[in-house]
Amino acid sequence: MTETAQIAKTAAPARPREKKRRNVFDSLIGRSALQILAVVGFFLLWEAAVRWGWLSAFLVGQPSGVLRNLIGSIANGSLFTDTGFTIFEAILGFAFGTVIGSVIGLALWYSIFVARLVEPFIAAINSVPKIALAPIIILWFGTGLLSKVALAISLTSIVALITAYQAAKDADKDLQALLFSMGASKQHIFKRVIAPSTLPAIIATFRINIGFALVGAVVGEFISSQHGLGHVIYVASSLYDLNTVWAGLFTLMLVGFLFYHLVEVTERWLLPWKQQQGGTQINV
């Protein structure tokens, strides 16, 4: 870094500073302003297109209608109940799925024999589209909370399992050798090398699994449910109530977005040694 900085200094001494000025919008405020502008512009355009008759409100809905719908469901509290249900299902599915998957994946590190034995089965299970299991899962676990959580677990656990196992296999052999030469036992090596070096990969699966857990919860709700955002969307779409569908979708989007940021905060907290000082992307 310092070297490139020096080269840059010596290579272009005479150029006036102004020429290298950065994009005025390339700051947190600038970017946010552009992003907000894009969102507001999009909705205004949509609203205008519906009002001027270019698009049919029946088929695409209408932002003002979506907003009214959101305000209404906030006022009567149903938005919070439904969102709460979906979040609860997704979080349970995410937590259990990720923990179960990661634990099994890491445990496979202990025995190469067992790992090789079960590898084809894991591949087979992974290749089944888990959503196809939804009808059976509803049959087995009923139409309540349990079936949604089970569906979310079926989606998240396999991702966590494969990632954790792969990361454990890829853990630095030299670090393990070093500890072994110090006289460390297998448990020691697991605790001091395998577990910490797989942690970044496991946290990376959080990001994917948050999405999968929501998929599990919502699909479960589509099939059979009394509550939840999936239920709201499904019922509304069968009634051609596009505004309610959009209200549900935007709420889901917001939930996913918040979860994603929660993962980022968790990552920063759990992996302090991974934090960059300054940007690492080269400014080409």
Binding site: D172, D174, L175, A177, L178, L179, S181, M182, G183, A184, H188, R192, V193, P196, S197, L199, L271, W273
Partner: peptide
């Protein structure tokens, strides 16, 4: 358990601070 093995790569554990790296063998 009785040798101190040091390789070309420093093999410091990236998730451990300098102090914790030094402590590694003592913990073991």
């Amino acid at each position: 358990g009785r040798v101190g093995y040091m390789m070309q790569k420093d093999l410091l554990f990236p998730w451990r601070t300098v102090l914790d790296n030094v402590l590694l063998g003592l913990e073991t």
